[in-house]
Design a protein around this nucleic acid. Structure first.
Length: 408
RNA sequence: GCCCUGAUAGUUUAUCGGUUAGAAUAUCUCCCUGUCACGGAGAUGAGGCGAGUUCGACUCUCGCUCGGGGCG
């Protein structure tokens, strides 16, 4: 059993054991709470909180970070790796999976969780973010989005309704509305238009999603998040947030940030937007994955994160450690026998030297990529564990300052 | 011993009688955020030594040193 594997890892501390309890519950399929989101601890100095989201697959403790598994795998890791860390949720991409292998196959294989043999929570992004990519995005209108399949040039039209159907076929536990993703650098006009479409589509997503799951008991339903856009304009963020909240989604995402704008702008918008989201709903800051941005957002009451940042950085040789960033490709690590991070308990740090990992990575060996990826994801999972521990102890604020300083 | 051939960043190499001597790789710094595995931006870094020809030589000539090949 997966939870036994976790039990055998000696490095779990007392407070981590509580996370473990929750995960055991999930692994055993025991659901207990009434509402699907409950807050179990609030920080006094900041807006940070610990909560539990009840999904159809079981409970998950917040705040948490989801590694990106676009094509149903976190690049270079197996589902078994994810279990050993443990990673309690991953996010995949609806549009990419629709292109290949197609939601029909995933459905036939028992849904995404079963197919990829992952017992954590599966989230899916709608594919709205792919509008950011010139390679596959063509154009959009009020009815939906035109994408093109980059491998075949086939033109594909995705409506909000279609997107919901795909995500239900994929059978993820948490789904996202189809949204329009404007460039942060976009002018006011473009972002106003993106907000308009995002709201329009969200409404249609919500209606269709409810309709498709009407016959299911609540605890077996896929959850749906509404996405708040608005770039760096507070009035647009406010308008979008209020409209989303009115539709009463299961959770709310803050999208369109961490894409090149200054960090203080990002923080400003998160803080501002957060005010319009009800306290009793989970909040997801999309695309954020750097340690400093995560702890800052947690202090603003954000509960969920995802990002390619830790995995992409790992492959490119930037390692997250308890002492800040480490660039493993540097010559200074040529004959360094030390682990990546002396304070880390991951299997990479227990078994491999910087020297070996550097050699592998510099030679583009996939083992190097794998070891770095495992470590960086483990680091972030551990960071989230620490966040919860510090919130429980009432010392989250000073912990946050420490991390912010380490990664500034 | 003789003949041929080569010598340019740490490494592999391009080019030229007047050049900011170009690149790859290595090195250093920075970047990466709802994924594009093996990535991006910038920086540092070079004509073996000594003569000669020439207004001017990394380039042509000679010698030396070192390397590669051939003949004895």
């Amino acid at each position: 059993m997966a939870f036994k594997m976790i039990k055998n890892q000696r490095f779990l501390s007392c407070s981590e054991a509580r996370l473990q309890d929750i995960q055991e519950l999930r692994f055993l399929g025991c659901q207990k709470s009434k509402g699907f989101f409950s807050i179990i601890k609030e920080d006094k100095k900041t807006k940070a909180r610990i909560g539990i989201i009840e999904t159809k697959k079981g409970p998950i403790e917040t705040p948490f970070f989801m590694p990106v598994a676009t094509k149903m795998s976190v690049k270079f890791l197996t589902s078994e790796d994810l279990k050993t860390m443990p990673v309690s949720a991953v996010i995949s991409n609806t549009f990419v999976l629709h292109l290949n292998p197609g939601e029909k196959l995933i459905k036939k294989m028992g849904g995404i969780g079963k197919f990829m043999n992952y017992n954590g929570i599966n989230a899916t992004d709608s594919g709205g973010f792919q509008m950011y990519s010139d390679k596959i995005y063509e154009k959009s209108n009020d009815k939906g989005v035109f994408f093109k399949n980059p491998s075949s040039n086939e033109r594909i039209f995705i409506t909000p309704e279609k997107d919901m159907e795909i995500q239900l076929d994929i059978n993820s536990d948490i789904a996202m509305c189809l949204d329009e993703m404007p460039s942060v650098k976009g002018d006011r006009k473009k972002i106003t238009e993106a907000v308009r479409k995002t709201v329009l589509w969200a409404e249609r997503c919500k209606i269709h999603h409810d309709k498709l799951q009407k016959k299911l008991p609540k605890e077996k339903r896929q959850l749906l998040w509404g996405i708040i856009q608005g770039g760096l304009f507070t009035d647009l963020r406010e308008k979008c947030a209020k409209k989303m909240v009115k539709m009463d989604f299961d959770g709310y995402s803050i999208g369109g940030l961490a894409l090149g704008e200054p960090k203080n702008e990002e923080y400003r918008i998160v803080k501002f937007t957060r005010k319009f989201i009800p306290k009793n709903k989970p909040v997801y800051l999309m695309g954020v994955g750097s340690p400093d941005e995560i702890v800052e957002a947690v202090s603003q009451g954000v509960d969920m994160f995802d990002s390619r940042f830790p995995t992409q950085n790992a492959r490119h040789g930037t390692i997250f450690t308890s002492e800040g960033k480490l660039r493993i490709k540097q010559l200074r690590y040529f004959e360094d026998k030390k682990p990546l991070d002396k304070n880390c308990n991951c299997f990479v740090c227990k078994n491999y030297s910087r020297s070996f990992i550097r050699y592998q990575l510099k030679n583009q060996e996939t083992v190097g990529m794998r070891l770095c990826t495992y470590h960086n994801i483990f680091y972030l999972q551990n960071l989230m564990r620490q966040c919860k521990e510090e919130i429980r102890k009432g010392t989250f604020n000073s912990f946050k300052k420490k991390i912010m300083k380490l990664y500034s």
